[in-house]
Design a protein around this nucleic acid. Structure first.
Length: 499
RNA sequence: GCCCCCAUCGUCUAGAGGCCUAGGACGCCACCCUUUCAAGGUGGAGAUCAGGGGUUCGAAUCCCCUUGGGGGUACCA
């Protein structure tokens, strides 16, 4: 049995994209399922667009998701670990130069001196003639003397790979047999720029060969590039890996998921309070299914069940609603202490934003868990849900105070008598179970609907109509602050309310 | 334009010739629970399996065509 080596090769030209995360996940799943090796390689040859900030965002994001790799740079900007180091393409330049030299020596590639103007003129002419764009091969047959003359002119030669003739076929693990006629590849393509820097199609093959990658698992957008890669593998004298092209993640309009039409940055999902378990679970189920009716799965359970050849062929629309549902499932499954740890930064963010006035201690947060857990679609929703617990002066919309069936006078009377009842229970016995019966009795005594009474109290102490259960909320607030808020609400009702 | 890929409820999917009068999940609707909101439970609407031809005793499943959608066509990755 072969030892599988797979890789994720992100380009630090933008923040970690949901699609990259999914590709990373599938590589991870495959490596772990087969007991193989999972490599991370940074493809930073586009120096104009690459940055260390993006590199950090990508590595941190993948770590956050729990998709650790066996070889590659652990931390942005730092050296990599593994037998094939370095794992950052800008540090591997000599390797590409050497490979380019070999291809040139074998005449598998040749220097091309065409100017951008010539090239775009060619393209324009082809377009006018309604022909597919392709390199015309102006420099393909240059003699050594002609090449020397052009170099002497000071023209920088790019290196073009000879595409040749024939059909390239391969067996894609998810798609089956795929064939391309080399004639449709667009002619000889550039592998090294005029300035000597190598291009993607070239570096990816040189590195996959050097790093002994056995299975290339990537997005479907690379399917049409695969014949170029295969040709390069052959020219370099290296056996071709197996290829598996994953279906794309789509915008709601079924085009390739993009920043323009969807939220694509993993960091944005983290900031909203999605948990890694849910994101991983959701992403794994985009384009793959267990074949059973299991839906909520941990990453280990997914590793166990994952099979690359069960991956779907068709693209999948990113459905945020389903992700939110899974997020709720996972929030409810988390260990309480873990959940407190994860919630804390979101409460801190509320404080930093000035939406609350102080930071609750961990044990307070923890005691709240039973009533807030099932009400949090995301961790970031905690402020909206119970932020009222940690503000000094609650702002209440007076009109909200009066239940639909009541008027201001009744509300005032209701709150005042409720205040009396609550005060009587005293601080020692201020518990949910003790608060409810007397308040219900109060409603009955006045022939009020309990819902109306409870709603008036709810709004008075929280400022909202949707909250966790009322009595748990009162206990969380404490006797003193409960009474204080009731007093303020009663005062606000003075002189009636417009509605 | 050319090349390649794809096609089951709105969405994610089960389905590898008879088990399918097509199953599950999200979302939606109703009911139950209930002090609000959730969560949970029960039920419902929702797919002539893109369309048309074949193959076969039998096709969502195999083949062909059409249509539709997507991706790729750079001295980007």
């Amino acid at each position: 049995m072969t030892h599988h080596r797979v890789r994720i090769a992100p380009s630090p030209t933008g923040p970690l994209h949901i699609g990259t995360a999914r590709t990373a996940l599938f590589n991870y799943l495959y490596a772990r399922h087969t007991g193989g090796t999972y490599v991370l390689r940074l493809e930073d040859t586009d120096q104009a667009r690459s940055s260390i900030e993006f590199e950090r965002d990508i590595l941190d994001g993948l770590h956050w998701l729990g998709l650790g790799w066996d070889e590659g740079p652990e931390v942005a900007g730092e050296a990599a670990r593994g037998p094939f180091a370095p794992y950052r393409q800008m540090l591997r330049l000599p390797l590409y130069a050497e490979a380019a030299e070999r291809l040139l020596a074998a005449d598998a590639a040749y220097p091309c001196y065409c100017t951008p103007e010539e090239l775009s003129a060619d393209r324009a002419a082809q377009e006018a003639a309604r022909l597919p764009p392709r390199y015309v091969g102006r420099c393909a047959g240059l003699t050594t003397e002609e090449r020397a003359a052009r170099s002497a002119d000071g023209r920088a030669g790019a290196l073009r790979f000879r595409v040749g003739k024939g059909v390239v076929a391969f067996d894609d693990v998810v798609r089956g047999r795929v064939e391309f006629d080399v004639a449709n590849l667009g002619g000889d393509f550039v592998i090294v720029r005029g300035d000597g820097s190598p291009l993607y199609h070239f570096t990816v093959v040189v590195d996959d060969a050097a790093m002994e990658i056995t299975d290339v698992i990537r997005g479907e957008d690379h399917l049409s590039n695969t014949p170029k890669h295969i040709l390069l593998f052959r020219a370099l004298g290296h056996p071709e890996p197996r290829f598996a092209h994953l279906p794309l993640i789509l915008n709601p309009d079924r085009t390739k998921m993009s920043k323009r039409k969807s939220q694509t940055a993993v960091s944005d999902y983290i900031e909203e309070g999605f948990v890694r378990e849910a994101l991983v679970n959701y992403l794994a189920l985009l384009g793959w299914a267990t074949g059973t009716e299991e839906e909520v799965l941990s990453i280990d359970e997914i590793v166990e069940r994952f099979e690359l050849d069960q991956v779907h062929k068709g693209g999948a629309v990113f459905d945020r609603g389903r992700l939110e549902w899974l997020n709720g499932q996972w929030i409810r499954r988390l260990d309480p202490d873990d959940l407190v740890d994860r919630l804390r930064p979101f409460v801190a963010a509320e404080l930093a934003a000035g939406r609350i006035d102080w930071m609750p201690p961990d044990d307070e947060l923890r005691s709240l868990l039973p009533v807030i857990g099932e009400r949090l679609p995301t961790l970031g929703a905690i402020g909206d849900l119970v932020g009222f617990l940690w503000v000094r002066d609650l702002v209440i919309e007076p009109a909200l105070l009066v239940p639909k069936r009541w008027d201001a006078v009744t509300t005032k009377q209701g709150l005042a008598s409720a205040r009396l009842v609550i005060a009587e229970t005293g601080p020692v016995s201020f518990e949910a179970e003790e608060l409810e019966p007397p308040l219900r009795a109060l409603a009955e005594e006045h022939a009020w609907k309990v819902g109306d009474l409870f709603m008036a109290i709810r709004v008075a102490v929280t400022g909202r109509t949707a909250t966790p259960p009322l009595f748990d909320t009162l206990v969380a607030l404490g006797l003193e602050r409960t009474l204080e808020r009731l007093d303020r609400a009663i005062a606000a009702l003075e002189g009636g309310v417009e509605r």
